[in-house]
Amino acid sequence: MIAAWLFKREICEYRGADLNKGFESYIEKRDLGSEGFGDLLACIRNSNILLQNTIHFVTYRNNLNKILATAYLREPWKMGVHKRRGVVYLDVHKLPERPKSEVERKRCYWGYSFENLATENSFSDDGRGIDANVEFCSVIKTKLGAHRIVMGAEMDCCDATDDGRRFYVELKTSRELEYHTVEAYEKEKLLRFWIQSFLAGVPYVVVGFRNDAGILVRTERLRTKDITQKVKAKNYWQGGVCLAFADEVLCWLYGTVKENEDYVLQFVHPFNRLELLRAQSPCPEAITLHVQQLSGAAD
């Protein structure tokens, strides 16, 4: 069953919408740390997924996004790695960020504003009350190579076929393309769009292109499976390379980490290798409580 806001198809005809509307009342996203992971683990417990199936990894999609993208991009990231009862839990670690300028905050808001504009039953049409902390999370069982994964993934909205079958849609924003920005867009943004959508089986990405004033210029609907073909001739990146790299990382990780021990996996400057370090802090309480409750359910 798919639960999310409904995609507003007429967004593809919108021109000139002001994505700045509602910025003054916008509630920015809070960093919940492991609290958010606890919500995902509670959902997994309630469904008995781990008791009924062999699962190797539990994670949010964001961690897998980082691993797959590292095949081509050089950006820093860290994640917690905790092996309990044969399952490796990948916890999101947010790197320190410098405070955003007003312009950067607005650019971030334009993405949420476009999501609001492109969905039914969300916030008010003028953007008042947009809260970046309100989201839908889908829990997905998937495989990458030989490893079975349970993954939590935030979903923007859903659409439906003529016979009523629902499917998810990713919503993205980007600065309108110019001749000198197309290459960077196809090398980096399309790579990120494809990874995020492919991992969760999302068939469509809708991109809202805006100008520097935050005005919606046009929209483009992309089929996820066509994105790799779009860049194939230019040899910017290949989806198969990302998947093969991630498979190698997961094989190495699962075979290296020890039961009941805690690590940090990181890719940081000088960006020439992945590092697996023993963690200096204990296992997050959310994971410890989760494992304890699973043990009680199995007894």
Rank of each mutant, 00 (worst) to 15 (best):
51 L>R: 14
272 N>L: 02
149 I>A: 00
77 W>R: 02
105 R>I: 02
82 H>K: 02
151 M>L: 03
275 E>K: 09
142 T>H: 00
108 C>Q: 14
237 W>S: 11
210 R>H: 15
56 H>A: 03
178 E>G: 09
221 R>Y: 01
292 Q>H: 14
8 K>V: 03
223 R>W: 09
24 E>K: 11
4 A>W: 05
160 A>T: 05
110 W>G: 08
230 K>G: 00
173 T>L: 05
146 A>T: 11
69 A>K: 12
296 G>A: 15
244 A>G: 10
12 C>H: 12
118 A>Q: 05
92 V>A: 08
100 K>S: 06
179 Y>F: 10
283 C>Q: 12
223 R>E: 15
171 L>Y: 00
91 D>G: 06
212 D>N: 14
157 C>T: 08
284 P>V: 03
39 D>L: 13
183 E>T: 12
64 L>I: 13
208 G>I: 02
162 D>Y: 12
208 G>Q: 08
241 V>F: 11
258 K>Y: 04
21 K>Q: 14
96 P>L: 00
68 L>G: 03
15 R>Y: 10
263 Y>S: 07
277 L>A: 12
39 D>A: 13
125 D>F: 09
108 C>N: 11
256 T>I: 02
179 Y>K: 15
243 L>G: 02
10 E>P: 00
191 L>A: 10
172 K>T: 05
263 Y>K: 07
298 A>C: 08
230 K>H: 12
31 D>N: 11
68 L>F: 14
98 R>S: 14
133 N>T: 07
299 D>T: 11
36 G>V: 02
103 V>R: 13
91 D>T: 11
37 F>E: 06
214 G>W: 03
227 I>E: 04
276 L>N: 06
75 E>Y: 10
241 V>S: 10
60 Y>K: 07
25 S>L: 02
97 E>W: 01
49 I>N: 12
57 F>L: 07
4 A>G: 13
149 I>T: 01
98 R>D: 13
42 A>E: 15
284 P>Q: 05
58 V>H: 08
6 L>A: 14
198 F>P: 01
122 S>L: 10
85 R>V: 11
83 K>P: 04
42 A>Y: 09
279 A>I: 02
26 Y>E: 01
238 Q>R: 15
36 G>E: 14
281 S>A: 13
18 D>Y: 05
104 E>H: 01
45 R>G: 11
45 R>A: 11
172 K>S: 08
175 R>I: 07
257 V>E: 02
61 R>G: 11
98 R>G: 06
197 S>D: 04
150 V>L: 03
199 L>N: 09
153 A>N: 07
138 S>A: 15
124 S>H: 14
179 Y>V: 12
78 K>N: 01
162 D>N: 13
132 A>M: 00
37 F>A: 09
